[in-house]
Structure formats: C-alpha cells, structure tokens
Design a protein around this nucleic acid. Structure first.
Lengths: 252, 252
DNA sequence: TTTAATGTTTCATAGTATGAAACTCTGTTC
DNA sequence: GAACAGAGTTTCATACTATGAAACATTAAA
C-alpha cells in the first residue's frame, strides 16, 4: 500500500524511461561501464544489463572492443542528422542574432522552454574582452532570469505552479507579486534581470512569437552589470524587438 | 501456447525496444503523427501514445506546436554532440581517405559492420563527372559487395549463418563456396566485386585492423565498371593496403 | 447532421520486467 | 599461488507494470 503521491501525473512507461535515463548518462561521460551506469541511475545491475543489451541491439550504444566499456552508437548520428532543421530556431535565427550582437556589442542568447527548464539553444558572444560567456545547450531553471520571466509570461500558468516548487525559486517572492511582474512584462514586451541568476550579470529579454502569436523562444542580451545599467538595457529594447519581429517572420 | 522460436536469444526489454523503434521512425520522416507511427511500428495506438509521452518527457521528441505532429527533440543533439569522436573511424580516417581518393581518382568509402548490416560511416567521392555516389550513413545488407565480403571474412562465422537467411542472399550461392571465397580473401587481403550489389558498379575492399588485429572497418574504392576492370582494381590494392596500414596505426 | 480520422483515457488481465542472489571471469593483493 | 575484489552475466520466483480493446473526445471533412 503506497502513499498516493500528490498531483503525480504519469502515463509514461517505466522501462522505456529507464532506457532513456541510461542514454542520458552519456552526455557527460563518453565511456561508461555497467556498474558505473547502475550507480548513476540508481538501477539494479540486472536491469541496466538488460536495458544496455536492448540499446545495443538497436545500435544506440556500442561497446568499445578495446576497453569493453559502453559508448554511444551510430544510431544517434543517424537521428541527429535527420533532425528537421528547417524549423529549428537555433539555426534559423543565427543571422539575426549575429546582427544584434554587432549592434549592441553584447552576448546574445536564444532560449526555449523545455518542461520546467529553459535551454540555451543558440548564442553568439560579444567580442569584448569582458563578456558574458554562454554555452549552447545549457539547461537552467525556469525560476529566475530575464529569459525565464519572458518564457513564463507567455506560458500556461500551470507551469508556474510547478516552477514555484523548484528549489531555485527565490525565497520570499510570492506568487502574486511574481504574477504581477509577468503581467507587466506582457504589457511592456520585455523583461529585465540584474544579478538574478548569476552574480555580476544583467540581461534584457523579449519574446519571439510565430504567426499565430504563440511563444517560440526568448531572445536575450546579457553582459556584465558594469556595462548593463537598467537605463542602458532599456535602450536595447527597440533593437531586441526589431530582431524578434524579423525572426517571427522567418517562422512558417 | 506459443511455438518455441528457434535459437531466439533475447534478453532485451520489450518496452524499451519499442520506444527505440519509435525513435527510429524519424530517420526517414522528420514529422510524424501518432497514428502514422503506430502503423509503421505495428504497435497499438495506446502503446505508442504512452511511449511517446515517455520520449517527450525525457526530451527525445517534442511536438511541433503548429502541426501537433511529433519530431525529434533536443536531447538527440545533446547526445550527438557528446559522441566520443576520438576513436571514431569516420572522423579519424578522413585524411587517409582523401589522399586515397586523390591517388586513385575514384570514390573511397569506409564501412563498419553493425549486426547483420553494414553502414557506410564515411565516404569521399571521386571528382570525376561519372562517379560512384556514396551517401554517408547508408545501411546495406551484409550479403553482397566487396566490403561485405571483407567484413564477413574477419567476423565470427555465426554471423554468416544469420546472413544466409537474408533475403538479399544471392540464390544459388551455397555456403561452402562462399566460405572458400572468404578464406581466399583472408589469404590475399582484399576482396573484389563486380556489379554484385549495384548494376554498373565495381569495387575493391581491404580490411582495417586495430593493434590487436581485430577488424575495425572495411575500406573500399568503387566506381563505374567502365573504369574498374578487375585488372585495374588489382593495381589499386597496394594503395588500399598502404592506406589501411596507416589507419591501423592511428587507432589506439 | 453525419462521417471519418485524429489523439486520449480507462481498465482488467496477461505476462513482462524486476531485484536478489548466485555465478563467472579477470586482475590485484598479500 | 591462494585469497580477494570488482567487473559483468545469468537465473528465477514474484509483483506489478505494460498492454490492447474499447470507449471517449475533438476536430475536420462531406
């Protein structure tokens, strides 16, 4: 008799979930042994063994004949090569992002929401010596930062309910205050953050919509607080908005 | 009461297998609906629905907000970016392959065995107007072609047993004759095929070994039969062998 | 208003996935 | 060279998960 977990909504398949978890172990380390994987995923060795056999039989992983360790297989390539890039903001918007970077001389990033996280799917860095460094592919909580707020402002409110549970959620910020902020962002069309997620860094972000006015991504300019006063960032807004509009037109 | 399938050796996890099958649907088509996937994989709609939910929750696929269809997600990128390339023949051997192409002026391909198939993991095409076109990533049966024979010659004989079941297996070629061919290939160190797999095309292939004399891949030169007489191909062999030896040294 | 074609949910049941433990194999330590 | 440690592999009874049929919801076409 298990306790009934609250608001647990899962219609997912456990075995498949675990197989995918195993695959994800390889994002940080390219070579892994069975026992290592079992430890990381908290799964029984037998379970890992069978799932590895499954993944191997389908070509998603292979064993290095030298070391006998497991590594990612060719099927991953095959899939990656077939990702539809014609709608992929990360590729589509690169030219506009580069123009914007050249105009403002600060790092420009593109974020999308993925569940209760955001992902930096594209970035072009400022050419200045002191600059915001922005690794592509990085995942961050959806709780704080200018881009997070933009993404939240145009996202189903029930996501907010979940995000509030996030350990990154800033203590003391209550829902009503935050919702008021989101409302303001919707009215003004941009969000600003100063040292919210990372010390020394400030950012200003705007939404990118498709033709149907659905949110696609958040476009952000970020840099050191020394160069990014609130006043300065507000001067950036028109450039950001213009770029976002151009991007919108590119989306089918 | 099911009939006992003969020599069925599976210690794989069905649910995981099915999830991966679903992923593989996307290699040919980038956008797919649930029903389409169910049809292709021969799975029940409910099953597909749940597995799709699982794949989506882990970020392996996402839904296009426009069309509501499914497509591959960001996690695939993430994984692909982390494939260990330092041991990957496809990248490691490219320089040698280019040199060989320039020497022989014909298309050079690199194949590895994957189960009962071979995959063209790398290729550099001839610069001539009439040339063998060789898409990277293509999968072909392990039954016919010079590269297949090379791969088979140095592979566990029980793979041959399975390959003989392959519908591509040339009728009339019996096992003993084929095994004698493989023996000859092991003695001479190369294999030749003329219009075996594809009309108008001939090829000559050699094995690439690692330091422990284990087979890594097959290196092949292919072109139109008009330029690739058996005599001509035999003159290519020393170049191929030399390239293969250089490649062997590159493997740790 | 039908009809058809999606995607989604429910539910009883079959049978699969599971973990503990036993076992093998290789290499290390004393 | 015996004992040990650590990897990977196999076995097996059992619990519980994954499953498919069918009903349902939603939207688009006729």
């Amino acid at each position: 008799m298990e306790e009934k977990k609250m608001s647990e909504e899962k219609k997912t398949v456990r075995a498949a979930e675990r197989a995918l978890d195993i695959l994800l172990c390889f994002v940080s380390q390219p070579h892994l042994g069975l026992t290592e994987i079992a430890k990381q995923t908290q799964l029984n060795k037998s379970t890992v063994f069978r799932l590895l056999a499954t993944l191997e039989s389908k070509g998603f992983i292979k064993r290095d004949p030298e070391t006998d360790k497991y590594q990612l297989g060719f099927r991953i390539w095959e899939l990656a090569a077939n990702i539809d890039q014609s709608h992929d903001p990360a590729i589509l918007f690169l030219p506009e992002m580069e123009s914007l970077r050249d105009e403002l001389e600060e790092t420009v990033s593109l974020y999308i929401r993925d569940g209760n996280e955001r992902i930096r799917v594209q970035a072009v860095e400022s050419k200045q010596a002191i600059r915001r460094v922005a690794p592509i592919g990085a995942r961050m909580p959806l709780a704080v930062g200018a881009s997070s707020k933009v993404l939240m402002a145009y996202t189903d409110p029930k996501v907010l309910e979940q995000v509030i549970q996030d350990p990154m959620w800033p203590m003391g910020v209550n829902k009503e205050v935050y919702q008021a902020q989101l409302k303001q962002i919707r009215e003004e069309g941009y969000a600003i953050s100063v040292e919210e997620r990372e010390a020394g860094t400030a950012a200003v972000a705007v939404p990118i919509f498709n033709r149907r006015k659905q949110l696609i991504a958040a476009l952000a300019v970020s840099g050191p607080v020394s160069r990014m006063s609130v006043q300065q960032m507000m001067q950036f807004v028109p450039n950001l908005v213009k770029a976002a509009e151009q991007m919108s037109k590119k989306i089918s």
